[in-house]
Design a protein around this nucleic acid. Sequence first.
DNA 1: GTGGTCATCGTACTTAGTACGAAGAAGGTA
DNA 2: TACCTTCTTCGTACTAAGTACGATGACCAC
Lengths: 230, 230
Amino acid sequence: MSKPISGGARDRVPLSRERVLRAAVEVADAGGLGSLTIRSLARELDAKPMSVYYYVSNKEEILDGIVDLVFGEIDLPSPGGDWRSEMRLRAISARRVLGRHPWAIGLLESRATPGPATLRHHDQTIGTLRGAGFSVEMTAHACALLDSYVYGFALQEASLPFQGPDTATEVTEPIMQGFSPGEYPHLVEMATEHVLRPGYDFGDEFEFGLGAILDALAAWLPADGGRRPS
Amino acid sequence: MSKPISGGARDRVPLSRERVLRAAVEVADAGGLGSLTIRSLARELDAKPMSVYYYVSNKEEILDGIVDLVFGEIDLPSPGGDWRSEMRLRAISARRVLGRHPWAIGLLESRATPGPATLRHHDQTIGTLRGAGFSVEMTAHACALLDSYVYGFALQEASLPFQGPDTATEVTEPIMQGFSPGEYPHLVEMATEHVLRPGYDFGDEFEFGLGAILDALAAWLPADGGRRPS
DNA sequence: GTGGTCATCGTACTTAGTACGAAGAAGGTA
DNA sequence: TACCTTCTTCGTACTAAGTACGATGACCAC
């Protein structure tokens, strides 16, 4: 009856802070932040709720931890390389990562204590720009601009009820049903003449805006700096 | 004993969907999204929890509703005016509003059903750009770029543990304590030589990046379009 | 006053976070 | 072998939150 071995909890991979956080990411990926509870997390780990608390002191710490895990997935720019392509790749990677973990975007707002992956990420980004000749001040401007764009774009993508090309129709249709005719004329024009056209994919807007921003940054470089003067 | 009049619930302003949502915004403003519960909301309304459910069918509907209320606070651009200043004012207004209601940013991610204020807002924005001569396609690009920037900037501001000029020191200090020396050299440089200097205010970055984006948009106008070619 | 609709609320059930401390496993020491 | 310590895991139980269900009283038409 009280035989300890096998079945229940024995002889499986032991828990660890690492495993707890990774499992938390998986649960959130699968069902959104709302589905991440201590109990669902314990189920995913094949353990009991209170076991989790041996590795984290509360749920807040889990949220801080998974945000940092997500940051760790973003490709780091290398301070040696061409700043434009490094920043471009970093932005593209960040957008992809945040697309995989959309719940992380909303979490950023309430989390004030950055983890090590987050800090290293910013350190490398700043380093790349400084190494390319941007002044400290312009580097700050550039980071604020780039990060804002990436986060904001990911946020918009996450709040879109559809994803990928040609998927907008079924979702916008019911919303537009409720419109009084002529209530939102420009919105309707935009929808019918552009967004609902076959082949449209909101995600394609990303590189367009990114290019514009990088062009703007190039103009901030002291002397020769910006090749491609637009 | 069962006298109905006064004191308890009688003779006070009757509830309404409007009042419920406005009270919800106040509760969230005061204590964050986490403090917004049906019970805290009922307390704010001087009513009992279940009374709220006469006006909304569940908490999700409250969240949708307060996001739309927040959107309604943003100044609308007027399709007649100069597109550049209209977009500038809209962005500044949006940032200020999201600064007042930082919890709204995180909510955007999970809310897929836009309310009337949100729809009107986008309609007017599109209309202003179209009226200024932007093609449908370029208007889409412009909206994506501008909105991303505004949301992303607000998100970064919200996740900053400090706010306003000269408030960074006390918060970054304890974080930097934990650094191994030389672990984040560029971050340290940025902090000591710029961010922690007296007078620095992250909020000032906003107009800088905004100007760069508006310059970029101007270049997308067909012929004469962009005065101020940077 | 009888019936009906509107607005408010009391009760109670479910789920979530988590405090507290028990209990088993593993290893040391006498 | 007996006993003690430490590391993990978990059982129990308390509190708070969302909300289903139905009761209760106010107000109105007849």
